[in-house]
């Protein structure tokens, strides 16, 4: 009985203590100062990004250094200011304008990734390779090596630079492919074309060996979704001629026993499914988009 009374008293005490909370006025919530440093006087670059990307497509491009967007174990640098508008206007020409021309303004506004992070240097990996683009969540795309970005007509352009340019567009098309494929899944038969060949060990496979097994690149072997968007990215950046040349040049039997004829057939099946996916799902003529995109890229590298 006594215990019960004690418990009652404790509860009473708790009630009294909490009852004492005084009225905390939150103050003027319209003016919370924040930690500062996230705004600056807008310059010509900020205005260009606002007018060309943010206002029409709700895309922002962060070019000022923010370590919080990046790996903390990589040595990286921000981009040179004189590279930002050339890179982003090339992105606009090759990627946005061509999709708008084929699929319409609304399609692009609804589906494009909204956030670009621009980095001047490459991202050096411990195995000696350099990462030149990453993306996550269909929203954020990080472009590296902007300080080396050169297209035809810029001082110091050498043909080797065309690799960097193509690689950059490959990254963007790859990530945009993910967004489309995550919104509406492709025909699951696609996964069965090269079933059993998907592997986490793809980074030890050369592109040539991957081609012999019916994959467009080695990275396409990592998963069916990656396979699907690597096909899109390769076909758009290299054009129909580039893709046909890749397929026609496959020779020999792969270490897994796939013959050249089988590999060619698999790649052609994948191509057909992608063309149909674009037609049926998004009402886009893929071959027209491919021809436009490749033509724009060629103006920059040839």
């Amino acid at each position: 009985m006594k215990t019960r009374i004690n418990i009652f008293l404790y509860i009473l005490a708790l009630g009294l203590m909490t009852a004492c909370s005084k009225d905390d006025d939150p103050g003027n919530v319209d003016n919370i100062p924040g930690l500062g440093g996230d705004t600056w006087t807008p310059g010509p670059i900020d205005i260009w990004i606002r007018d060309s990307l943010t206002t029409p497509y709700n895309i922002s491009a962060k070019y000022k250094w923010d370590q919080g967007e990046l790996d903390f174990n990589r040595t990286l640098t921000p981009p040179k200011e004189e590279k930002i508008i050339p890179v982003m206007s090339a992105v606009k020409k090759v990627w946005i304008n061509n999709y708008v021309a084929e699929a319409g303004e609304l399609f692009m506004k609804q589906n494009c990734p909204k956030f670009f992070v621009l980095i001047g240097s490459g991202s050096y990996n411990s195995d000696g390779t350099v990462t030149i683009g990453t993306a996550e969540g269909g929203r954020r795309i990080v472009l590296y090596v902007m300080n080396d970005f050169r297209v035809k007509g810029m001082p110091g352009y050498v043909p080797f630079d065309s690799l960097n340019v193509k690689e950059m567009f490959h990254t963007i098309q790859h990530e945009f492919g993910h967004i489309l494929q995550q919104k509406v899944l492709y025909n699951p038969d696609f996964k069965r074309i090269t079933v059993g060949r998907y592997t986490s060990n793809w980074n030890n496979v050369s592109n040539t060996e991957a081609n012999q097994d019916g994959f467009v690149t080695a990275y396409a072997m990592s998963a069916p979704d990656e396979d699907f968007v690597e096909m899109i990215a390769f076909m758009l950046t290299e054009g129909k001629r580039g893709f046909d040349a890749l397929v026609d040049n496959i020779s020999g039997t792969s270490p897994n026993g796939t013959t050249a004829a089988q590999a060619k057939d698999k790649l052609r099946q994948k191509e057909t499914m992608i063309v149909n996916y674009y037609k049926d799902t998004w009402n886009i003529n893929f071959y027209n988009l491919q021809a436009r995109t490749r033509a724009t890229i060629e103006t920059m590298i040839r």
Binding site: W65, P78, G122
Partner: peptide, 23 residues
């Protein structure tokens, strides 16, 4: 100038200073 863990001075686009740090 931005408050990270401490008040910090960030040279936030490429300059001569970044040439030394460039990987």
């Amino acid at each position: 100038l931005k408050a990270l863990q401490q008040p910090s001075l960030i040279f936030d686009t490429y300059s001569y200073l970044h040439q030394l740090a460039d990987p």
